[in-house]
């Protein structure tokens, strides 16, 4: 992706900063879960895949990696329906230690729904790790146990975050103007 040639993109977080932060989070999580068995990393499709994979490479403890997908709000329609799980977990998380891995937490609406859905499956513990946190946009107070960067309200792309499926594979995080 030619970031320099695009006047619409401004790099916010570089590849080096990303690597450094992921390594830091990996260490912190490995330390906190060192005495715990049955850690399940639950990555939220599709945005968090890049972060989840990198994070998992930085863990020095055993874990199971699984994915969950939910439908997104489309808006504009008269009857948009309700959020649904589009891809469920393959792993039973009952009595296991779950770490939900998000690319970004902004309004808290998605995370609030996911936490509710996972809680009813009775995991031993349920924590949240997000690479980006956008508190300015928060509507619901949701717990965030690990976070990479706190960023201002802007349209962000790269490192899993897309704009109409573009920019997802960028190795940096940029603001789309």
């Amino acid at each position: 992706m030619e970031i320099e040639n695009s006047c619409r993109l401004k790099v916010l977080i570089s590849e080096e900063q990303i690597d450094e932060k992921v390594a830091f989070l990996g260490k912190a999580i490995s330390r906190d879960y060192a005495q715990v068995r049955d850690l399940v990393l639950v990555a939220v499709l599709r945005g968090s895949v890049y972060f989840a994979v990198d994070l998992s490479r930085n863990l020095s403890i055993p874990f199971i990696l699984d994915f969950i997908g939910i439908s997104s709000y489309g808006g504009g329609m008269e009857h948009p329906g309700a959020v649904r799980i589009t891809k469920d977990l393959d792993v039973n998380i009952t009595h296991k230690n779950v770490l939900l891995v998000e690319d970004i937490v902004d309004t808290g609406l998605t995370l609030n729904y996911l936490l509710k859905k996972l809680r009813i499956r009775n995991p031993s513990s349920l924590r949240v790790c997000t690479f980006l946190d956008m508190p300015e946009k928060r509507i619901l107070d949701v717990p965030v146990d690990y976070k990479g960067f706190e960023i201002p309200d802007a349209f962000i792309v790269g490192y899993g975050l897309d704009y109409h499926e573009h920019y997802r594979n960028m190795k940096v995080i940029a603001v789309l103007k």
């Binding site: 709000y73 948009p80 329906g81 309700a82 609406l109 998605t110 609030n112 729904y113 619901l140």
Partner: peptide
Amino acid sequence: EEFARMLDFYRI
């Protein structure tokens, strides 16, 4: 109204 739809969608 749009905000209410969003809340409905996310079951809030």
